[in-house]
């Protein structure tokens, strides 16, 4: 389903973050991507999410080459992906419910149907009773769960999670991982970038190690 062919990412100034990366991930897999800070984990997820473009090489998702998508097509591609960010990237001047409604509005789903689906997503991550709260009043773990609710509300089949358990204590980290595992058991493909080796060992899924821009 996800295929990277000789993917290189070089930033202005010449720093090479990824060098000739080749990768194949099957539909419905849950894969950990690990490595030290600056190894290129986040860059790899950004390339798959079309947040950045590779300097060379090809990225195919369901046989569609997304590495050369025109600028106007990128938003429509991103609607098919659920993204979970380490720093949550929530809208703090909106309610919890409004944050989850946003991806539905982007898909032109409004009104009662949107509210029903947003509440179902909040229910799934255990935030049903906080829909009127502002994200700033939530704990770190709750904010991350809200970020997951926003990522899954549009029912994407691919979820990219960049350090979803960073800065969380063990209990919160397991809550988040349990949610992601449940989504994977429901058939979703999930890529998780993390440097937490204990977490990787506990879940026993395929793990790709990035070092100096190369996969090992």
């Amino acid at each position: 389903m996800i295929e990277l062919i000789d993917v290189t990412k070089r930033y202005p100034g010449g720093h090479v973050t990824l060098a000739n990366v080749n990768l194949h991930i099957q539909l419905g897999e849950m894969v950990f991507i690990t490595g030290r800070s600056g190894a290129g984990k986040s860059t790899l997820l950004k390339l798959i999410g079309s947040i950045e473009k590779p300097t060379s090489g090809h990225i195919k998702i369901s046989d569609k080459d997304i590495s050369r998508l025109p600028r106007t097509a990128v938003p429509y591609f991103r609607l098919n992906i659920g993204m979970i960010f380490q720093d949550h990237k929530l809208l703090y001047d909106r309610s919890v419910l409004d944050n989850v409604l946003l991806p539905l509005h982007l898909r032109e789903i409004h009104g009662a149907e949107a509210t029903r689906r947003a509440r179902a997503a909040l229910e799934k991550v255990g935030l049903a009773d906080r829909e009127r709260s502002r994200p700033i009043t939530l704990s770190g773990g709750e904010q991350q769960r809200l970020c997951i609710a926003r990522a899954i509300v549009g029912r994407p089949r691919l979820i990219l999670a960049d350090e979803p358990t960073a800065n969380l204590d063990d209990d919160y980290a397991h809550e988040i991982m349990n949610i992601l595992q449940a989504l994977n058991e429901g058939g979703d493909t999930i890529l998780i970038a993390t440097h937490d080796q204990d977490l990787i060992a506990r879940y026993g899924k395929r793990c790709l190690v990035l070092a100096d821009g190369a996969l090992s």
Binding site: T72, Y76, F77, R78, L79, H105, L106, R107
Partner: peptide, 15 residues
């Protein structure tokens, strides 16, 4: 921030 977050999750320029 709001614009950049919206773009990350698929907002078009039109939106």
């Amino acid at each position: 921030d709001e614009i950049e977050i919206s773009r990350l999750i698929g907002a078009t320029d039109r939106f």
